[in-house]
């Protein structure tokens, strides 16, 4: 259109040497600048949703509503106040929600709206590396969210030991990662976003309410309690609470960890095969 008098010629000489093998770790590492830039752009907005809403929950449920609840350690799984009981469960439930929100619309957006995955997979990057980088970003968010949340609540005197809270945070991150992998696999297969509404209403919301975050699952009766213990979130809530309250039953902690790790591994396969089928056809 405009005249181009003295434009320097573009260097088109061949760049990298062909045939270099791209390792898994290297493939993931090459995406760090992308996720770092996305984080830089979005962290302000996510601060609000990450910390403010659960903080409001803690105040409303833990402090105000909890004031009506008798702090009986026998009935509150070892907690001496309802606040101490609800906080570790609430952070675990919040980890689930963060994981789900990071692996639903964002994954679908990268598949079909922005088509970022398509552009990534036109490079030497491969599907497992792309999935891993995205899930690592979600994991990093979970670590930050759960850690800051724990630090904010420490002055309330809800933690019983110095070593419990870090392990509780790890538990919360673990349950978050488990949900991230499972939901990522679901999103990778989903054709349109209406499915997310069903996931939130029939999956996430009931889990949030009935997996022991707000009351001991034994309150649900024998059958209800066992049903609750079959949900992945309960394993995270229980683990998180046992560490936070320094009230650990080690064999049960082992079961909780094993279940979550196993589900996360299943979720990882499910995610990779889902994106592979979707993008490489």
């Amino acid at each position: 259109m405009e005249p181009q008098p003295t434009r320097p010629a573009l260097d088109t000489s061949s760049g990298a040497t062909p045939g270099e093998a791209l390792t898994f770790v290297d493939g993931v590492r090459r995406q760090i600048p992308y996720w770092a830039t996305v984080t830089k752009r979005t962290w302000r907005g996510s601060v609000v949703s990450s910390f403010l809403s659960p903080l409001l929950y803690v105040v409303a449920m833990g402090v105000v509503l909890g004031g009506f609840v008798e702090g009986d350690p026998d009935r509150l799984e070892g907690a001496t106040s309802y606040l101490a009981f609800v906080v570790p469960g609430l952070i675990a439930a919040h980890a689930m929600q963060t994981a789900v929100s990071e692996t639903t619309y964002p994954v679908m957006g990268m598949i079909k709206w922005q088509r970022v995955y398509e552009s990534m997979l036109a490079t030497p990057l491969q599907v497992p590396q792309v999935v891993a980088a995205h899930l690592l970003f979600v994991t990093a968010r979970l670590v930050v969210t759960c850690t800051v949340f724990t630090l904010v609540l420490a002055p309330f005197g809800v933690f019983e030991s110095w070593w419990g809270p870090p392990l509780a945070v790890l538990s919360q991150v673990l349950v978050g990662v488990t949900f991230a992998t499972l939901v990522y696999g679901f999103s990778a297969r989903l054709r349109n976003e209406e499915g997310f509404g069903v996931l939130f209403r029939l999956g996430v919301f009931p889990l949030f309410l009935f997996s022991g975050a707000f009351f001991p699952v034994t309150n649900l009766g024998e059958a209800g309690a066992w049903a609750a213990r079959l949900t992945p979130l309960w394993h995270g809530v229980n683990l998180s609470r046992m560490f936070a309250l320094d009230h650990v039953t080690w064999w049960l902690a082992g079961v909780n960890v094993a279940v979550l790790v196993l589900l996360a591994l299943v979720g990882w396969r499910w995610s990779v095969t889902g994106l592979q089928r979707r993008m490489v056809s």
Binding site: P33, Y34, T37
Partner: peptide
């Protein structure tokens, strides 16, 4: 810039 990094190009 970020696309270049996918190919292993230094920053």
């Amino acid at each position: 810039v970020i696309y270049g990094r996918y190919f292993g190009t230094a920053r």
